[in-house]
Write a protein that binds this DNA or RNA. Sequence first.
DNA 1: AGCTCATGTAAGGAGCGCTAACATGCGGGT
DNA 2: ACCCGCATGTTAGCGCTCCTTACATGAGCT
Lengths: 218, 218
Amino acid sequence: MSWKRERPETPRGYHHGNLKEELVRAALGLIREKGPNGFTFAEAARMAGVSPAAPYRHFRDRDELLADVAARGFQAFEAALSRAWDQGRPDPETAFHRLGRAYLAFAHDEPAYYAAMFEAGVPLDASAELRAAADSAFACLRQASEALIAQLPQGKRPPALMMALHIWAMSHGIAALFGRADGGRRPLPMSASDLLEAGTLIYLQGLGIGRNSPPKPD
Amino acid sequence: MSWKRERPETPRGYHHGNLKEELVRAALGLIREKGPNGFTFAEAARMAGVSPAAPYRHFRDRDELLADVAARGFQAFEAALSRAWDQGRPDPETAFHRLGRAYLAFAHDEPAYYAAMFEAGVPLDASAELRAAADSAFACLRQASEALIAQLPQGKRPPALMMALHIWAMSHGIAALFGRADGGRRPLPMSASDLLEAGTLIYLQGLGIGRNSPPKPD
DNA sequence: AGCTCATGTAAGGAGCGCTAACATGCGGGT
DNA sequence: ACCCGCATGTTAGCGCTCCTTACATGAGCT
């Protein structure tokens, strides 16, 4: 068994072999610990055990690495949301609340991704991938909104886009204000997840989709 | 007329006379143009026409200046919200929507303040003033929520704190995602203000405070 | 085997946060 | 009226980061 480079750690030759991925991992760790601003190109290089100039072979500058992290974040986000929505099974309302919990769980469990996506000031058109990933994630929310709205009688259907924007805004607002791993900026009387679920219930009730006000199929 | 220091600009003596205020003004300008991270202590000093070390006589470090800006922001924010709420005149619902518009108007018209308050990562307990100002602003929202809830019959009143958190989250979510001066990260089918008003209407409807479902005073 | 080019390194300029030591002059005490 | 204290400014400088330029290495193709 004469492998070439399987040792997981330090001793490596002149070429790293997988620097780009390792830089992304290092960036995630640094962002998680010190926020998207505390993250430093030089320190990521140090973590990967290469010289401070090496990262520039893989990313034009610091912002491009941040944009790459954000794009990967949106991809993971979209995957998590899609999995939670599960095509609306067993019924749209159950799936919708599961979607909301998945949103907050992502923000809570992947603070580095979430920060890169929403708090680092990365412009969405920094790359085509980033834009596409962000659009996919939003499309998931919009799709779920459409499924719920379809339960309403023809005349009383609000625009699905608007509903998706409302839900996104409420979710992001709760995540940003109260959903951080450190408990957020302000003590809450309930968990962020429960807060979002309650808000969603009230909002859906307002639309006439409440569990206690089914669209009488008369 | 032998004044001492009334010329508004450049020629000044060894002592500036009003450096602290000028640094805050410079910080606001820089944050507005380049975001809370692009803001630089040295550049603020340059704008005030002073050496790079001078600011340290007024702020322990860069973070303390940022915290001061955030605190002033929350004070202005609270003033704007209180003015909009106007003690619930002429009726709580009208005033409530006016409050929502004021929220978004502040985020839109004072992006530097808003960024320092919510996007700069300033911990709320950076200073007692900051904490107090932030609490006052939230108290305004909570007070408005209580006034609206008071319209409901005793049995059907949700916790005012929860309602305030929901409204804050939706407002902040819309401001953060779509309410920037540059139009936000994503094109909208309607203005951020209208989006919030629609969302609030639906939410209130869900609580039974909708204009079309008044609390039948049977 | 030898070439080529992606990927690494070394060195350095410009800018920033922050500190230390020194300069200035406003204002209060005698 | 004087003088001295102290708040507020200055210069000099350390260590760090971002990024560029010129050079070194070695993996893989022909």
